[in-house]
């Protein structure tokens, strides 16, 4: 068993691809995972997520990004500071960056991994993902499996 790990999906469910983090977390949650991995639909919770993030030594954030990569491109980074995040994490970026900065200043920053899914612009008022973004699911899932295996090995299991 590894340290408790939170998989946190963020984004706005009503803005199509922008909500991919949330949609993927809802999907991932239905699959089989070790019991030390917890999932949370963080929506556009912003600072409300502070208490959840403080509870976990390891947090993996799933979020949409407009980083210029083709739609559906998946990337895993380990950001240290807010400015390590890709330039435009769409409409809710300020909330996430502020959250991380606050945790840093509070001296409570967990080990954060960020899985981004590239999107191209924001679609207004739809709950559907485009095909390319939706197709990123398997890669995100695979990345999480690999990451969880690494976290497990780290504690010598």
């Amino acid at each position: 068993m590894s340290e408790p790990t939170l998989i946190l999906g963020i984004g706005n469910l009503l803005l199509g691809n922008e909500g991919v983090g949330v949609q993927f977390v809802q999907q991932l949650e239905k699959e089989e995972w070790p019991d030390w991995i917890h999932f949370l639909d963080g929506g556009t919770g912003g600072f409300h997520l502070l208490s959840e993030m403080e509870k976990y030594p390891v947090v993996v954030i799933l979020d949409a990004t407009m980083d210029g990569n083709p739609e559906g491109h998946v990337n895993l980074i380990q950001p240290k500071f807010a400015s390590d995040y890709p330039p435009t994490l769409s409409a809710h970026d300020v909330g996430l960056k502020d959250l991380i900065s606050s945790l840093y200043l509070l001296g409570k920053v967990p080990e954060v991994y960020l899985i981004t899914i590239s999107i191209e612009g924001i679609q207004p008022m739809t709950m559907n993902l485009t095909e390319k973004v939706n197709n990123a699911y398997n890669e995100v899932r695979k990345l999480l499996k690999t990451l969880s295996g690494k976290l497990l090995r780290r504690v010598g299991v």
Partner: peptide, 10 residues
Amino acid sequence: FISSGQLGIF
């Protein structure tokens, strides 16, 4: 925070 060029929240 500031000396590493990270004003982040501010």
